[in-house]
Nucleic acid binder design. Structure first.
Lengths: 103, 103
DNA sequence: CCTGAATGCAACTGAAGGGTTGCATGTGTG
DNA sequence: CACACATGCAACCCTTCAGTTGCATTCAGG
């Protein structure tokens, strides 16, 4: 199922990358276009996009002479479900321990 | 609402930290106890716990002479809900764009 | 056709972060 | 009361990583 979560979190852990992803969430764009909107070089943006793509958070498509990138909400939902699941297991376990200790 | 997500992702992005958190999810433990189970020094573990606590993923309580840490599933659920929400917004936007382009 | 714009590759720098060791200091329990 | 064990603080190493600059290349379109 959903591949290792760590790479996704690592990808999301950087502010710039998160901003970039949020921007792509509003509308697809090319690296050069993003470079005009953000205060960092195009190369830096390309590297971030590589990381995001590797994490399954972005996908890219050739359009004429430019490579257009878009954010994938689906992957985010996958991760969300996994987190929710894990979180509930922990909470349940904690509750059980507390019950044992007090009861 | 749920404070900035970035710190949480940054915290979850490290494999060792994730492993540590998963371990605490099974049962609370002190830093020294964890140091006996993991192949890294107690100091390294303490630093990881600091990061996790700052992200709201762990909380610590003094028990006799030791500081016992436990994983907070609740925070994980918060993040999950936020992710799910954002993911759906992106998907909806994409669908709308696609409809416009094709329709 | 030819030029501007977009991409790709590579080397380099500086800072952040994971990990270590050493030491000082508390404090529970035998 | 003493000693073992848990914690805290600090300096230090080394790798990873964000970001930069420079250059080569390709290709869409006027």
């Amino acid at each position: 199922m959903s591949q290792a979560l760590a790479p996704v979190f690592a990808a999301l852990g950087d502010d710039t990358r998160w901003a970039l992803l949020a921007r792509l969430g509003e509308a697809p764009a090319s690296a050069s276009a993003l470079a005009r909107e953000f205060p960092i070089s195009r190369q830096a943006i390309v590297k971030h996009l590589d990381v995001l793509r590797a994490a399954g958070l972005v996908d890219s498509e050739q359009h004429g002479r430019e490579l257009v990138h878009r954010a994938l909400g689906g992957r985010l939902s996958d991760v969300a479900r996994e987190l929710e699941r894990v979180g509930q297991v922990w909470e349940a376990r904690l509750a059980r321990i507390k019950r044992l200790a007090e009861g």
